[in-house]
Design a protein around this nucleic acid. Structure first.
Length: 218
DNA sequence: GCGACAG
DNA sequence: ATCTTGTCGC
C-alpha cells in the first residue's frame, strides 16, 4: 500500500458536519451541583499510532479519579476543520461506556462551536455519544471577536478567550454540546489551577498521552 | 485568485 | 501533532 492514509471525501465530510451540527444543544440539561466529575481528552502520536488519554477527576475538588489510555493506528490525515474524522474513533472507543452520562463534563482538546460548520471535535464527540462537552483549544480557528475576550459564530457568542497576563499565550474555551457558554466558562475556569493556562484534566491527559507516545517511539 | 487553517 | 540544542527567565 503506497498510501496508508485514506483520503476523505470533502463534500460528504462537510455535509455530515452540517447535519450533525444541527443536533448540538447549547443549553445545560443539569444543575452545576449535579456534576460530579470533569474529564480531559487528548491524543498524541508516535508515527501513525495515536495514543488517546482520558483523565477523570472529581469535581470540584479536582482529586484524580482515574486514567485510561488507548492506542491504535490512525488512518485519516490531519486536515484543518476535519480534525474529528482523524481523532474521534479513538475517543469513541475510550468514552463509549459514558454515553448520555449527565454527571461528567468532558473537556476536549480542540474547538467546539468555533468552527466553520459549527462542529469542531468537541461538539462532534458530544453529539455522537450524547455527552456534555467543552472545547479547549490553544489556537484560534474560526469566528468573530466580540471585544477582546469573546468569540461569536453566526452572531452568537460561543467562546471565551482566556489570556495569561505576562506573555501572549491564550486558550479558547468553547461550547461543545449540552452546555451553555456561561456554564462552560464557569466549569472550565474552576479547572484552571495556578499558572497553568490549561484546565487540569486536559493538562494531565496531554502529559500522559505524550509520555506514552514517546515510550512507544523509543 | 488570495489568504487562513484546531491537532 | 512531531522533529530538535541551547538558551532566556522565573
Amino acid at each position: 500500500m503506497k498510501r496508508q492514509l485514506k483520503k476523505i471525501n470533502r463534500s460528504k465530510a462537510i455535509y455530515a458536519q452540517r447535519l450533525l451540527s444541527r443536533r448540538v444543544s447549547t443549553s445545560s440539561p443539569f444543575k452545576e451541583r449535579e456534576i460530579k466529575y470533569v474529564a480531559g481528552l487528548d491524543v498524541s502520536y508516535a508515527g501513525n499510532v495515536g495514543v488517546a488519554a482520558l483523565v477523570i477527576m472529581k469535581y470540584p475538588s479536582l482529586k484524580l479519579h482515574s486514567i485510561k489510555v488507548l492506542s491504535d493506528i490512525v488512518s485519516i490525515p490531519y486536515i484543518p476543520t476535519f480534525l474529528a474524522y482523524r481523532e474521534i474513533p479513538l475517543y469513541v472507543k475510550l468514552c463509549f461506556s459514558f454515553r448520555s452520562r449527565r454527571d461528567i463534563v468532558f473537556l476536549v482538546d480542540g474547538h467546539g462551536l468555533t468552527h466553520p460548520r459549527k462542529l469542531g471535535i468537541a461538539s462532534h464527540l458530544g453529539v455522537v455519544l450524547d455527552l456534555i462537552t467543552i472545547g479547549v483549544a490553544k489556537k484560534f480557528l474560526y469566528g468573530t471577536y466580540i471585544g477582546k475576550e469573546y468569540i461569536a459564530v453566526d452572531g452568537v457568542p460561543v467562546a471565551k478567550v482566556i489570556s495569561s497576563s505576562p506573555d501572549d499565550r491564550k486558550i479558547f474555551i468553547s461550547i461543545g454540546n449540552n452546555i451553555s457558554l456561561q456554564n462552560a466558562i464557569k466549569i472550565a475556569e474552576k479547572c484552571i489551577v495556578r499558572k497553568s493556562l490549561l484546565p487540569e484534566p486536559i493538562r494531565i491527559a496531554d502529559d500522559v498521552s505524550r509520555r506514552v507516545a514517546r515510550k512507544i517511539r523509543r
